[in-house]
């Protein structure tokens, strides 16, 4: 069972990383050179059906992979994804995350937190990571584009094998 779950994380993470990092998909998906944060949407969605601790590890590893292969500041995305998972973990009893508007709200909130984190670390590591005012427009597109992807990606949690694989959390609570 554990092997199956590891395989599940590996496959779904690989697909998302491929979509987010591959030049091939970038050519098709990017709008004004801006790509959606598919991994963030995935982490929020999977948090509902997967184990919390496993999701923390998944978020850290995928975030670090993105940092290593695309980010300027190594650890920034890993940091951000870990923060998102931690927030979801702490507020999971208060959240009704099985409705689409709430998904959208969570993703929007996470993206705003991401912007704050970017500004914070951009201020600390000025020499490698600078946030310009013009970046805000791109970031606005980034937010909208990411939100656009939420309804499509939310279908993942309705895929039967994925539900069966993570049924303990879905129905065990």
């Amino acid at each position: 069972m554990l092997f199956k779950r590891i395989l599940f994380y590996f496959i779904i993470g690989s697909i998302c990383l491929f979509i987010q990092l591959s030049i091939f998909t970038n050519n098709f998906l990017a709008i004004k050179n801006v790509m959606p944060d598919i991994m963030l949407v995935l982490i929020i969605l999977l948090f509902q059906i997967c184990d919390d601790f496993e999701m923390l590890i998944f978020a850290f590893i995928t975030g670090f992979v993105i940092d290593v292969y695309s980010g300027n500041l190594a650890g920034l995305n890993a940091f951000f994804y870990c923060i998102v998972v931690a927030l979801l973990y702490n507020f999971k009893n208060y959240l009704n995350i099985k409705t689409l508007p709430f998904y959208l709200f969570l993703v929007l909130l996470s993206l705003l937190i991401k912007l704050f984190i970017y500004y914070l670390f951009g201020y600390i590591f000025k020499e490698v990571f600078v946030i310009y005012k013009s970046t805000l427009l791109s970031y606005a597109i980034h937010i909208l584009y990411t939100l656009f992807w939420v309804p499509f990606l939310s279908m993942i949690i309705y895929i039967k094998p994925i539900i069966e694989l993570n049924s303990k959390k879905m129905y065990g609570k």
């Binding site: 850290f60 670090f64 190594a74 940091f79 870990c82």
Partner: peptide, 13 residues
């Protein structure tokens, strides 16, 4: 993880 991320960010510079 948070510590590793922050250390990693410091190491970048």
């Amino acid at each position: 993880f948070i510590v590793i991320s922050i250390i990693s960010m410091f190491f970048t510079t």
